[in-house]
Design a protein around this nucleic acid. Sequence first.
DNA 1: CTGAAAGCGCTTACAG
DNA 2: CTGAAAGCGCTTACAG
Lengths: 366, 366
Amino acid sequence: MTRVRKSGGKRAATLADVGQLAGVSAMAVSAVLNQARTSSRISPATRERIRRAAETLNYRPNIAARALATRRMQTIGVAAVVEGVELNDYFLEVFKGVLAAASARGQNTTVFALHNWGSDAARLPKMCDGRIDGVILVAPIMEAGAMDLPSHTPFVSIHANENLGGVPNIESDEEQGAYEMVRHLASLGHRRIMHLAGPLGTTGRDRRIHGYKRGLAGARVPFDRELLVTADFTTATARDSLRHWLRGHAGHLLPQAIFAANDNAAIGCMEVLAELGLRVPDDVSVAGFDDTLVARIAVPQLSSVRQPLRAIGAKAVEMLLARIEHPASPAATKARARSIVFPVDLVLRASVAMPPAVDRVVPTRR
Amino acid sequence: MTRVRKSGGKRAATLADVGQLAGVSAMAVSAVLNQARTSSRISPATRERIRRAAETLNYRPNIAARALATRRMQTIGVAAVVEGVELNDYFLEVFKGVLAAASARGQNTTVFALHNWGSDAARLPKMCDGRIDGVILVAPIMEAGAMDLPSHTPFVSIHANENLGGVPNIESDEEQGAYEMVRHLASLGHRRIMHLAGPLGTTGRDRRIHGYKRGLAGARVPFDRELLVTADFTTATARDSLRHWLRGHAGHLLPQAIFAANDNAAIGCMEVLAELGLRVPDDVSVAGFDDTLVARIAVPQLSSVRQPLRAIGAKAVEMLLARIEHPASPAATKARARSIVFPVDLVLRASVAMPPAVDRVVPTRR
DNA sequence: CTGAAAGCGCTTACAG
DNA sequence: CTGAAAGCGCTTACAG
């Protein structure tokens, strides 16, 4: 029943239009254009005629219609907090990995921008309404029980703050990264190594602290409580925290090195040191974490711990597609929800050097 | 004809399911849940019953089905080149503006990542297949005739390199920005102001050069050909171009200030100056363009020309939605395709100061 | 092996 | 004013 399109419509051509022009059914067009198994029964000549008709009419399949029939949108969602000015490069790197992998698999990517995980996570179920086939959670900070993710939508998380039941997580070996950076600093002769730690209640903080302590122990440097300072992952807070610490330690020995929770925090440290006329790395070495763009832009360039963010993003797509294409029972799903841990690398740049020959003292300033 | 769902399916509830539970037709459910005008005829009690049934079944409308019926996906596409490491912050800022505005209007945003405009622009028509209602082109570099954008899909461009027939463009007053920065430098006493210009064949380059020249003229500083150097919008090329220039001008007078095509290029300049032991701004002032994140991270912080990138992204969404919601004839569309120009601001930071009292000479180095 | 028919889940125009 | 029916454009199971 090849219906004729309503008049006046500048609307896109449909399968039926193509079929009409080629003198075959819409089904035959679908089979040929999708290279379905069934297309083999159609003669080469007819196939060519169909192709030409599609070309002539500039036919594009209507994805919404296809999605309704196949229950697949060929689209994955990425949920992330993109507002915080400072998370830019972390997110963008992961996102590029996602985009590249999704595109290679013919999948579209739509972004769900959250303001913060606490309140906006409740919006996630709304997004699982058939416009995406699965969702990647980027650095979610939420409790496993805080919300129930719709069971008909597959999820994968990256750097999740805690284990979300049934959601496989992809992360990197932050503990080892912190360990190696501290060992490196110690190998250069540093003994007073400050760690400007991430915010309380995050695994990112805990693991880096773990690695920091293990690194100190490995180098036979006693752990000094005074040198473990809590900040967070932003430049502003790092600046404040370090300023506050220095004010409270005027006249005391200055740390020889500062290992910050991430690159943004390290930048904050460099700014504070510059204010005091202290030079990096001559007076104090500074190291960061993540090896984001800012590490290369900083002057001097920042030593950091590289996480393979693009590869992590790409891996998330692979795992998500596997779950979309081979849905399993809830039990099996849970069993498969293993985490994947990527290795990290030390990236050494100019911000780290040997400690000064003469011990420095925290300058006194109003 | 309220059909009973196939057994075993853990699939999402449909309108029919909700209707069945509430004892009404699917249509009634649709009317109530969408707050259609027709819902007014349904009694408050029934409405409440429907709402409760939807809640119980955790009903979510299937967007693909709705899209098929309404011909609207409630989704806009953003096409951009995100691969170039250096364009990060420009894109991300625009993108944030798009996300926020789209979200506020209940629209989803999907990203089409292109490798480069030259070859990948051909993929654009494929994307206009019913999964998006319109497309925002971010910084497209292509010729108006190079490809015909599908006429049934509305487009809006941001910082388009040339006028794309029928596509309204949103940009900022780059010429004025360059002018003001040069006037500012001149007001501090700078006379030898180098401009490290963007790549040939881009309007971004031409406009900044225009503003640069107008600024010089306004300050009665004669234009010196030697001080107009072609680079591009990346740190690496800026570095190479400036190095090359300095090598060719050993022993000559050093520029007192360098106004770079953008922030990334300015960073490259600062790196080269640092290599030679020259200090910013004591020996040479440096200014950028865009006021991206790197401007605030640079040491010293970079003076720059701020473009309201978020506002530009948001405006693009507004204009696109207007076109989606009120489609016009091709002729009217073309007439409406006016460009919008946002004003820019000078952002003054530590990288610019008065020129040194004594003229500097380009150091000689192997 | 083939093609007409049913169905995906929604909305809207239209007959009662 | 109301509700049953048609239709959006595609795919797939199924009767010939």
